[in-house]
């Protein structure tokens, strides 16, 4: 069996009496897209936050590359190569699209204390940024300020920033949200290839996207994994239909 890159065991997080994550076991193997689905409020985003380090788990373990990372903060985990895209675009509003991706490239080089050389003339950073923007099809919008980008363009910019980080794994929280039919299908094609660069833990509401992309699907309901398997197995799983898909298809 292939060693998983990311492995969660018995991960638990509660806010007071509310258990948002309840003994979750989950792993992510090289080259795969592992989709996490579940109804609203199931705790999907909380789980991503626990993995990324924005929230601290109460108990359980998170192993990355065979190493326990539960004690590390968000910054340290990002440096190890866990790169996250946000459910609601989280960008630097006054920077241009290119400026945002250059910041990500700069972060990958862990370079902060430069005081003289102008970033705008930094061929290394601009080159990496333009490359990432081209891959998501935003190259012609590079100079546009983020606050003037459309919603869909902001979603793609999130992906471009993640690409510039050259991560070991992607944690993607609803990348398709609000992209529209055409945008979604293009992004599906893109993510399909991206898994070869780094595995993706994908939260997505768009079921077509999930069933097309996912090598494995885990279903989260009320903080617990109730089912796991390939697309066909999940589609026909009775508990899943009852808890989740049933509501959608009705």
């Amino acid at each position: 069996m292939i060693e998983p890159v990311l492995e969660l065991k018995g991960l638990t997080k509660s806010f007071g009496a509310l258990k948002v994550t309840d003994g979750v076991d989950l792993d992510l193997r090289p080259g795969e897209i592992h989709a996490l689905i579940g109804p609203n409020g199931a705790g999907k985003s909380s789980l991503i936050k626990l993995v990324a380090g924005e929230l601290a788990a109460n108990s359980g373990s998170i192993r990355f590359d065979g190493r326990e990372i539960n004690g590390l903060d968000q910054i340290a985990r990002a440096r190890l190569g866990l790169t996250r895209t946000f459910q609601v675009s989280s960008l630097i509003p006054e920077f241009s699209a290119r400026g945002n991706v250059m910041l990500a490239a700069q972060a990958r080089h862990r370079s902060v204390f430069g005081f003289v050389r102008q970033v705008s003339r930094d061929r290394e950073l601009t080159g990496e940024a333009m490359q990432a923007l081209e891959r998501v099809g935003l190259a012609d919008r590079a100079a546009v300020r983020v606050s003037e980008l459309s919603h869909g363009e902001k979603r793609l910019l999130e992906i471009a920033m993640a690409l510039a980080m050259r991560p070991r794994i992607f944690l993607m929280d609803e990348p398709m949200a609000g992209l529209g039919q055409e945008g979604s299908s293009r992004l599906i094609g893109f993510l399909d290839n991206l898994r070869r660069e780094a595995p993706i833990l994908l939260i997505e509401h768009d079921m077509d996207a999930v069933f097309q992309l996912a090598d494995r699907i885990s279903v989260l309901v009320a903080g617990r994994i109730i089912a796991r398997g390939k697309a066909d197995e999940i589609r026909t799983h009775p508990e899943v239909r009852a808890a989740y898909l049933g509501e959608d298809e009705a």
């Binding site: 990324a52 924005e54 968000q74 910054i75 340290a76 985990r77 990002a78 440096r79 996250r84 946000f86 989280s90 960008l91 630097i92 509003p93 006054e94 920077f95 400026g99 250059m102 910041l103 990500a104 700069q106 972060a107 990958r108 862990r110 370079s111 902060v112 204390f113 430069g114 005081f115 003289v116 050389r117 102008q118 970033v119 705008s120 930094d122 920033m161 980080m165």
Partner: peptide
């Protein structure tokens, strides 16, 4: 400094601190 790496990172922190942390800075 404002246009160099430090200044850029500092201005990014002002606008969206959480994002900068998520990038590993």
């Amino acid at each position: 400094m404002t246009g160099a790496r430090f200044g850029i990172a500092l201005q990014a922190v002002r606008q969206n601190e959480g994002r900068v942390a998520a990038l590993g800075l």
